[in-house]
Design a protein around this nucleic acid. Structure first.
Lengths: 217, 217
DNA sequence: AATAAATGTTAGATTAATCTAACATTTTAA
DNA sequence: TTAAAATGTTAGATTAATCTAACATTTATT
């Protein structure tokens, strides 16, 4: 983990990288309210630390290592925002500033408990997705399989449980992340769902299971 | 508000000042894990800012301004610890480190909500008293008047409510902080308490009132 | 294509917080 | 009561993050 300043650069670079086009030194300087040479020198430092890849006059690109770090900070920021709104009953407009401070708290225990207290939420109060402990982000357009319409064909984008037992269960049903599946039938009385998997076989998934499988339309 | 480093110096100086004897440069250096000259130079800086008073080779003394700042940080630290234990269910042994980070969060709204969420607690998980918003500390040996024994003579050490209405009420009963009073009778059915005030007059105080008056034995 | 505008880099200074080495004062104790 | 030990200060160096001024490269525009 780097300094507070480094964390702010990494988070900002990551956010800019999601927008179309290269991440430029001037964009970064503007976002961080510093002058251009300040950015150049910090980028060199982050480059030595392998958080970004950089060659003079070319744009700034994040490495996998940098992305991982960025997602960890963003996770903390968004969990903090949701916590401030849901638990401390602060307004969603006023929480950003406080979350900017809380995102630098270094304690996995702290953030995992907040995650738990909030029921492992998928999005912050602004609807932005919250990366999980491993930096996995459930796309904003994803929904739990339990909410997919009968007849729709969807792609498994994520599972919100990493337990071996759960993953083994999915394997035994012939399911994997990335698979395209079709929703055949939804049982009202117990919330179970019948689907057709990649191998065109029909299987039944319980309510507990379809709640934990997230899909993209 | 000063830098994070300044806040740590101020908090540490305050804590050392509660122990008997002068606060020395070497004590501070040891507590903060820095060398002596580092302390000397920071003390000079804090002295310019009127947080401490200092003359070379004499000890370090806190000013009122410094104490106020220290109590604000300590309040945040202790609220954070209690929050971590009570709400996030972390162990009391592990919360100190996280609280060291949270105490630097700059947001009154944040801490006042936590205070509220915890029910305006008087002590942290270690039994250390939590200063209120105004830096007032209820001594560890204080108890609410509602818990004092009949026949005991006690001194009013604090009131946990600053509303004019409440303070006017106390005035009308001839009560002030610092007054020595005697508990005459406690009514079981409504929690009211009869006391004898400084002027040897007997008065009845309701449950709501005796809950908010803290006394020392 | 030549040049002006925009963008990026280098060099060197500044500030906060730290350090080491050398010196000064105060306290302890022989 | 003076020498040794402990404690504190000053001077000057270092590192992180920032700045301004000067220079370099890239992009846009006539």
């Amino acid at each position: 983990m780097g300094s507070l300043t480094e964390e702010n650069y990494i988070k900002t670079i990551y956010n800019l990288s999601l927008e179309p086009g290269e991440v430029s030194v001037s964009e970064l300087a503007k976002k961080l309210s510093v002058k251009l040479p300040t950015v150049t020198s910090m980028i060199k430092k982050l480059s030595v630390k392998k958080m970004v890849s950089y060659a003079p006059y070319q744009g700034i690109k994040m490495t996998e290592k940098g992305k991982k770090e960025a997602l960890s900070i963003i996770r903390k920021h968004r969990l903090a925002e949701l916590f401030l709104v849901k638990i401390l009953k602060l307004g969603w407009e006023e929480v950003h500033e406080i979350a900017e401070q809380l995102e630098h708290v270094n304690s996995d225990r702290f953030y995992n408990r907040i995650d738990e207290l909030l029921g492992f939420p998928k999005a912050d109060p602004h609807g932005e997705p919250i990366p999980d402990v491993n930096g996995k982000v459930v796309s904003q357009k994803s929904i739990p399989l339990s909410q997919a319409n009968v007849g729709s064909s969807v792609k498994i984008s994520a599972v919100t449980n990493d337990e071996k037992l759960f993953l083994d269960h999915l394997n035994s049903k012939g399911l994997q992340i990335g698979d395209q599946i079709t929703v055949k039938k939804k049982e009202e009385f117990d919330g179970s769902v019948s689907i057709i998997n990649k191998s065109r076989k029909e299987t039944m998934l319980s309510h507990q299971v379809v709640e934990k499988i997230w899909v993209e339309l």
